[in-house]
Simulated scan of single mutants.
Amino acid sequence: MNTLARRILMGRIHGAFGVRGELKLESFSNPPEAIFRYLPLTLRTTQGVEREVEGARGRATGKGIVMRLPGVEDRDAAEALRGAELYVPREALPPPAPGEYYWVDLEGLRVVNTDGVDFGVVSHLFSTGANDVLVARGERERMIPFVQPDYIVSVDFDAGVVTVDWDAEF
């Protein structure tokens, strides 16, 4: 499958939990256990092998999410999946609330500042804990805090443009 661009990374397996094949899962959904609402999941191993997973289930514990996958019956099988990632199709997610965005929807949009200077396209976004950061790549890379309306003036999906209030020299 080569459709990673239209899929959302929803979780990462961090290894075995116990001896019966359960897995420690880092879930990127909110709340974390909501990842199991988006079945089937696509499992991508660290070797790049992908398979669709039906019947995944899990629970929240004091130490995070614990997941069971069909066919993973012991600690060795669970450890073999360490580092594997779980994806869902973008279409499986609910529409974002007004003023909210899925990062994958912003990737590839053109970024221009309020003076019309083209900064390139949105490469990716990341979180600093304090706020999210939009990375625009053009003739160089710029990191712009995703703070509306201070720095992110508008997002126009129809035009494919993110307008930013950001100095071209910065």
Rank of each mutant, 00 (worst) to 15 (best):
D158F: 08
H124K: 13
F126Q: 01
A16T: 11
P95T: 04
E139C: 00
L9S: 01
P96Q: 04
F28G: 03
P31R: 12
V162C: 02
L109G: 01
K24H: 13
R142T: 00
G138C: 04
E26W: 12
A80K: 11
T128G: 07
G11V: 07
E33A: 14
E22H: 12
R6L: 00
G11D: 06
Y101D: 03
V66C: 06
E26M: 12
P94R: 06
G116W: 11
I152A: 01
F157E: 12
I13N: 05
A77S: 12
D105H: 07
L41F: 05
V111Q: 01
E107W: 06
G58F: 04
P70G: 08
E85D: 11
V161T: 14
H14C: 13
E91W: 09
I35K: 09
E91V: 11
E79N: 13
G71Q: 09
L106H: 05
T61Y: 11
G83R: 08
F36Y: 11
P94A: 05
T45I: 04
F170Q: 14
A84D: 07
G62A: 14
K24N: 15
A56M: 10
L4C: 00
A80C: 02
G120W: 05
L86T: 09
D115Y: 13
P94D: 06
N131I: 00
Y87Q: 10
S29T: 15
V111G: 01
N131S: 09
G21S: 12
G138A: 03
G48M: 03
V162W: 04
E91I: 09
V88G: 03
S154E: 14
F119K: 01
G58L: 05
D118N: 14
R68F: 04
V155P: 04
L81G: 03
R37H: 15
V164H: 05
L86R: 10
L9A: 01
G120H: 06
G116D: 11
G108F: 09
P98A: 14
F157N: 03
L93G: 00
R142F: 00
V72M: 06
Y151F: 14
T46C: 02
T128F: 08
G120S: 02
R137V: 11
R110K: 15
H124P: 00
G160K: 11
D156W: 10
V164C: 06
P149L: 03
V117A: 13
R20A: 15
V122P: 02
A168P: 02
H14I: 07
N2T: 05
V49I: 15
L43M: 07
D74Y: 06
V155D: 04
R44I: 13
Q47R: 15
Y151V: 00
Y38G: 02
D76R: 15
A168W: 13
V66W: 08
E85K: 15
A136I: 00
V147Q: 11
